[in-house]
Amino acid sequence: MDYYLLSQLINGVIFGLIYALIALGLTIVFSIMRVVNFSHGEFYMLGGYTLYALTSGAVTFFSIPLSMPTIIGLPIAMVAVAIFAIAIERGMLRPIYTVRMDRPEEYAIILTFGLSLFLQYGALTVVGPYEMTPGAFWEGSKHILGDLYLAGDRLFATGVSVLLIGITIYFIYGTWTGRALMATAQNRVGSTVVGINTVRMNMIAMALAGLLAGAAGAAMAPIFLVYPDVGQIPVIKAFVIIVLGGMGSIPGAVVAAIILGIVESLGSVYISVAYRDVFAFLVLIGVLLFRPHGLFGQKERRA
């Protein structure tokens, strides 16, 4: 195998892992709350802005400019976005499962869609349309093998993705809270009967989505910069990924994300870089033709 192809494959896997980080939160919220969170991309954006505000020195706190190291800014940004996500769950989404209402899913879609626009234009009004560049996590470019060099920041983002995906998978499959989340996703009444507080599970799902999206937004900020609609393209890809992998499937999301990363990377080299963002949909259409419930999705059983 020539180094060129290999380097493109590595590049694709790296992008895939980063996409997976964004898609995980989306799929977790969908499977547990049955809410399609259209504002997920704005959670990502908020992660980037929080990192910028904490580390760049442009923002002052009691007249002290905030310029903490980026590596400390990242976990703070994650927590900040998670708190924001919990606030959205408590303040806006909770009625869909605590109050008896007609068409709760539609309510949630309109709500998160509106929230997405509100946050984008809110950011535009408050900080303006400028692209902001937070400081690097890992300066310079690193030699991988042959003539393959990768930006340190990109490697850092990959490391963060792998770490957080690993922790999330352990959390879901290896802890009691994670099992309760799975149970809630599969049968809410059954979960309540065994004593699981499903309202709290919704909150945990949303917090998890905030942590992951916030981490992705912050880790990617030095690479892709930060601006009001920075979350748009990543979240569209995340939607493609979770449909591709099977709505609500965590392994599905990770595998689909990596497939998508590789296809994009090879497609833009061997076909045309202009179509980069189209490949996702080609793969999606191709897969859905043969597996309408996605790669790992389970067919609904009605019996």
Binding site: M182, A183, Q186, N187, V189, G190, S191, V193, Q298, R301
Partner: peptide, 13 residues
């Protein structure tokens, strides 16, 4: 222990 009328098993576990 409450056993509702509908199915409440966790089907994929």
């Amino acid at each position: 222990c409450y056993l509702p009328q509908e199915r409440t098993v966790f089907a994929h576990l």
